[in-house]
Lab assay of single mutants.
Amino acid sequence: VSFKITLTSDPRLPYKVLSVPESTPFTAVLKFAAEEFKVPAATSAIITNDGIGINPAQTAGNVFLKHGSELRII
């Protein structure tokens, strides 16, 4: 599955597209996205474009099915 993750704390709204296997734990996606944007993973969260928080204790495939591919990291 592929996710387009936007960094909301930067006024330029940079984004990265990450492709991972469906079975990947979403905690790993969060950690990798945080490292890519050089923000601390421990204090970061991934939310939907509607501002709904995503529980990272599920697979990337589940997140994709529930929330789609466009996400934000805060």
Results as ranks from 00 to 15, higher is better:
V1N: 01
V1F: 05
S2W: 03
S2T: 12
F3Q: 00
F3N: 00
F3T: 01
F3H: 00
F3G: 00
F3K: 00
K4P: 00
K4F: 03
I5H: 00
I5K: 00
T6A: 10
L7Q: 09
L7N: 13
L7S: 14
T8S: 14
T8L: 03
S9V: 09
D10M: 07
P11R: 08
P11V: 03
L13A: 07
L13G: 09
K16F: 08
K16S: 11
V17D: 08
V17W: 14
V17P: 15
L18P: 01
S19D: 09
S19C: 11
S19E: 14
S19K: 02
S19R: 07
V20M: 13
V20G: 01
P21F: 10
P21M: 13
S23F: 10
S23K: 11
S23E: 13
P25L: 12
P25H: 13
P25I: 11
F26K: 00
A28L: 11
A28C: 11
A28Y: 14
V29T: 02
V29E: 01
V29M: 08
V29Q: 00
L30W: 15
K31L: 09
F32V: 05
A33S: 10
A33N: 01
A33V: 08
E36M: 11
E36G: 10
K38Q: 12
K38V: 07
K38M: 11
V39H: 06
V39F: 05
P40I: 03
P40T: 05
A41E: 14
A42K: 10
A42L: 04
A42N: 08
A42D: 12
A42E: 14
A42Q: 05
T43Y: 07
T43E: 15
T43D: 15
S44Y: 06
S44D: 00
A45D: 06
A45C: 05
A45Y: 04
A45G: 13
I46S: 02
I46P: 03
I47T: 15
I47M: 13
T48E: 07
T48Y: 02
N49Q: 09
D50Y: 04
D50N: 08
G51W: 03
G51P: 00
G51S: 04
I52E: 11
I52C: 11
G53A: 14
G53F: 08
G53H: 02
G53E: 15
I54S: 02
I54R: 01
P56H: 14
P56S: 13
P56W: 06
P56E: 14
A57G: 08
A57P: 05
A57K: 12
Q58F: 09
Q58K: 08
Q58L: 12
Q58I: 04
T59D: 09
T59G: 03
T59Y: 09
A60V: 06
G61M: 10
N62Y: 05
V63H: 07
V63T: 05
F64Q: 08
K66R: 08
K66C: 08
K66Y: 06
K66F: 05
H67Y: 04
H67N: 06
H67F: 07
S69W: 06
S69C: 06
S69R: 11
E70C: 10
E70S: 11
E70P: 04
L71C: 02
L71D: 01
R72S: 13
R72D: 06
I73S: 01
I73F: 15
I73N: 01
I73Y: 13
I74S: 15
I74N: 14
